[in-house]
Design a protein around this nucleic acid. Structure first.
Lengths: 220, 220
DNA sequence: TAGATTGTTAATCGATTAACAATC
DNA sequence: TAGATTGTTAATCGATTAACAATC
């Protein structure tokens, strides 16, 4: 029996889909119309069998003997992820990091649109960040409910992060991307993603240290 | 028998260590001297049995009936990760994002020190970013070899990323943290970490979409 | 038909977790 | 001694991969 793909989808599958999508978008830009699990495997460093298996959780998108239609597969993955339409984002924090995120055009290109940049510092309110006028944090709740925003990005210093997270949660935000180094707490119904560069550095550091213990770089 | 912990350590273990460390540092700051796998489990959302198992890959750090000494465990994990001493970083790209990273004090607090900020735009050279004077990209190779830097951070626009990665690799950089949305290619001996906010957003989006299909938010 | 590549099964592999003896 | 919590084993669970029949 087939057809109901509503079963439990392993977390790992969901994590890999955005990578497949990135690569497919790249292939599309290069004018490729067809691809194979072997090619996708090369580009994403994922085993081809795994890619095929991952996709079958959601349906059959390829043609045996031929491969996958790039455009079609892009559409399918976007629809699975819910990235087939624009998503509105509010961004709190108009410092260097906030400005960088607000003016990052990779967001819009891949379906995310920053609808407001907010800050609690009245000195920053009224200035510009990535084409938007910075507004006061007091407006957050109204903006979120009026524009039905589900996604919030925290780009404030460590000590302000929890406060912002609380405000976002109570305003109806469902997904928070936290760029501060603070470990914020959120209610169960809110999904939190921490993007901590230091944690990623520490992770690679392990492998770096190992490599150097085996083949040390001499200091003399 | 015991003692040689040199065996293959699962990748997942290495990924969790930085999370344990973050939480331990937080506990230390709060003045806690002892903790347990149960408490660490709460704070990191990891099963306590898993935490204990992860740690035994490297030795025995706790006391039965008592728990773990916070300071001691911090030292052990730092030593496992190679984070028991400062690591020098070069940062390429002095735009908003580069400035944000350069002035991020979370780096220094956790063992990473930015020794140089570079840019290819001569108009930016000489200006300040996070307490450092911006230098020209031509100086990268010399700085990397003179100061034996192993870690490079890319904070430039998409089209310049590959060029910077190549230069880093040929200068002797071993770990690259890529903040651009470009999918750069690096030689085998260089470790690459992509930090793409969009990919993280897409990942959470899946769960958001699911949740809303089940309990939609009405627009009327 | 011969060649290619999918979708899918079955086998392997590894990671997670429960349980508990050891021990503070 | 009683209570707590580790380190470790064994059982469970799930994910990855190889292999191949189906089919373009």
């Amino acid at each position: 029996m087939n057809g109901d793909h509503a079963a439990r989808i392993p977390e790992g599958v969901i994590e890999r889909l955005p990578a497949y999508l990135s690569v497919l978008l790249q292939l599309r830009q290069q004018g490729e119309t067809t691809t194979s699990s072997a090619r996708l495997g090369e580009l994403t460093d994922v085993n081809p069998a795994q890619i095929r298996r991952d996709l079958t959780h959601f349906g059959q998108f390829g043609k045996r003997g031929v491969g996958y239609d790039v455009l079609l597969l892009i559409e399918h993955i976007q629809s699975i992820l819910g990235s087939d339409h624009m998503h509105r984002i509010v961004l709190v924090g108009a410092g260097h990091l906030g400005s960088a995120i607000a003016s990052y055009d990779g967001l819009r290109a891949r379906g995310f649109s920053v609808v407001a940049v907010l800050d609690k510092d009245r000195a920053k309110v009224g200035s510009r960040a990535g084409g938007l006028v910075v507004r006061h944090i007091d407006e957050l709740e109204r903006i979120v409910s009026e524009q039905q925003v589900r996604i919030g990005v925290i780009a404030v210093p460590q000590d302000a992060a929890q406060e912002v997270a609380d405000l976002m949660a109570s305003s109806g935000i469902r997904v928070i991307l936290n760029y501060s180094s603070a470990m914020v707490r959120v209610p169960d119904h809110v999904m939190l993603h921490n993007t901590d560069p230091v944690r990623e550095l520490l992770h690679t550091l392990y492998y770096l240290s190992r490599a150097e213990r085996i083949a040390p770089v001499h200091a003399e």
